[in-house]
Each structure stands twice: as structure tokens, then as C-alpha cells.
Simulated scan of single mutants.
Amino acid sequence: MVLVSEATYNSCHEFLKEQLPKHFHNVRLGIICGSGLGGLVDTIDPTTKVEFHYSDIPGFVTSTVSGHSGKLVFGYLGELKTPTVFMVGRIHLYEGYTPQECTFPVRIMKLLGVESLVVTNACGALNPDFKVGDLMVINDHLSIAAMTGQNPLIGPNLESFGPRFPPVSDAYTYALRKLAFRAALETNISKDDIHEGVYTYSSGPMYESRSEARFLRQIGADVVGMSTVPEVIVARHADMKVLGLSLITNPVVTARGKDAKKEVLNEMGIETVVDDAVDTELMKANHEEVLEASARRADDLQRLMTRFADLWAKEYSH
């Protein structure tokens, strides 16, 4: 296991401070852009933009997934010009990195002064009431990977960031969830298109089997994805406020599917059996549809996040 030392975090922080204009030495709002959601960075004032490729930042690993360009971008967001840092593309466990490497940028955000972190993602819907293109504000999570040992806090605790045993029962800040709903409604997103629910983290990279999907739904999950929770765990360990926002890009297949035995009995004339199950082969998820759904909702997400930043700045100005 690759563990990250406190010295590595500090040297990365010092590198960025040396490269950044002084007005970005204390950035209070951070946003992580999920699959296909990198266009959120277009909401910032282009005249204030400063960006770094992950490959140029000490301690950062590179993002290898389509839809994740791999840049750390700084700029002023919204009418109130809130200094903001964006992760344009995240790092995933399934790319071969450790949980500590995947969450390294979150602690760098903390060192840069980030107080509130917005974590966005593309995900599949388990809840049958959710449709493609809907948004979901996360109010809790199920972390299958963390519960089975893939936890970013495993290893020596870095006391300078947080305690050995942090609670996550309050992981998603209630006040920020309210601001997100207000921002959505004020930017003309229909109340029927934005929900609140439980996000499940699965390490991926495969999409879930039908039985796994039914299990997740039965234990309380509304959506499932391959990111977000490790970043949230590290953010809460460092006492950052967190908002999680999911874009529904595909329905998750939970149907039991066609019965092969019944089909053969019919074909051989042994027995006439009615099989009205759906053909699950026609419902398979793929990454292309994730990116397409993200692109269709891009403008709405940009307006929502710009308005959220202004509401946040008014609420947390000091």
C-alpha cells in the first residue's frame, strides 16, 4: 500500500503557493467535477483562471479516464467572485491507485484554505422514481469499498488533518444541501428533476450485476457510482463541510432477466412456458451514455453551481 506522508502534502502545498497569485493563497470553496462534468469550470471568470495539469503538481497522480481531463483550476466563481478551486477530473481506485492517492487533492484543498467542498458525480439510478438527467443531492452514503478495507484513512493518522476515529453520520452538511435545492429552484430546475437520497460507492470499474443492484436497492441505496465517498471521508476527517451532487446518467439494471430454461423448453416443444421477463441484454450500461447524459445537463449544472457559489458566499462570508 502506498501511504502519503505529511511532508508530501506540505511540499505540494508550498509548490502551489509559489505558483499561484496571492489572492488564491486562501481559497475557501472547492469543487470536484465528475465524469463529463468538467464543463463546470467554464462557469468561472476566464480572466482570473489559473490551471495546473496533475502531471505537473508534486504528489498528484494522473487521471486516465475519458471525461476527466486532469487539471487543477483556480478562478473566481459567480457574481460575488468567490475564489474557487476545481478538480477537473478525479482519480479513481479502479485506475490502480490507492485510496490515499485518489484523495490526495482533497487534503491539498484543505491546506489551501477550502472550508466547503462540493463533490459531483455521474451515477446510475437504483431508485425507480429517478430518471436519466435528474439530479440528486446526497444526504447519506453506503461505502461498500470502505467497509471491506479500501478506506483512505487506513494507515497512520495524520493528526494535523483530523482525529483517528472521525464520525461520518453527518457527512453531508444539511445547510449546504438546503442551499443546493434553493440554487436549483432559483435557476429553473424543476422540483421534479432534483431529489435527495443515498449514494452507494462501489470501486468499479465494472457496472453492477443484476443481483448486486437488487441487493443495493434493498439496503437503502438510491444511486450507485464509482467515486465520491473516499473524497468525502477525507474531507470530513479534515472538518470540511461537504455537498454531494449526483447526475443520473443511466438506469441500473435490476431485473432478473429472461429464463434460459423456459426458452429451451419452448424451443424444443417440451412445454409451453410464458416468460414475460425483460431482455436485460438491451439494458446494459456504458460509459458513452454517461458522457452523453452529462453533456445534456451541462448548462443546468453550470447555472446551479454558479448560483450555489453566490448563496454560499452570502451565508459563509466572514
Rank of each mutant, 00 (worst) to 15 (best):
V168F: 13
P167T: 05
D193T: 02
E271H: 06
I219M: 06
F161C: 05
K191P: 01
M240G: 02
P166I: 01
F181Q: 08
K258Q: 15
V274N: 12
V252I: 10
L245D: 04
L176Q: 05
Y174K: 08
E208S: 07
D192S: 14
S246H: 03
I270T: 14
A213T: 06
K191L: 01
S202K: 03
Y201I: 00
E231H: 08
L179Y: 12
I219T: 04
R236W: 10
T200D: 09
A171H: 00
V224F: 12
A213V: 09
T173F: 14
T249S: 08
S203E: 15
G244N: 06
P166Q: 05
R256H: 13
P230N: 03
K261W: 14
G225K: 00
R217V: 04
P163L: 05
F165G: 00
S227L: 10
S211L: 11
A184G: 04
D259M: 01
P230I: 07
V242F: 09
L247F: 11
A235M: 07
K258S: 11
D259T: 08
K241M: 03
H195N: 03
G244C: 10
D275T: 01
A238D: 09
I189T: 12
V229Y: 04
A255F: 13
V252C: 05
S190R: 00
F181V: 08
E186L: 08
G197W: 13
E271G: 01
T249K: 02
K191W: 08
K261E: 14
L176S: 03
A184M: 11
E159N: 07
Y199S: 03
P251Y: 06
M240P: 02
E271I: 03
L245F: 14
T228W: 09
I233R: 00
V224P: 01
S160D: 13
A235G: 09
F215K: 00
H237R: 01
V224C: 04
G269F: 13
R256I: 15
L243D: 09
I219G: 06
V274E: 15
T272I: 08
I248E: 08
N250D: 14
S169L: 10
D193Q: 11
E231V: 03
G204I: 13
Y174L: 02
V232T: 04
M240D: 02
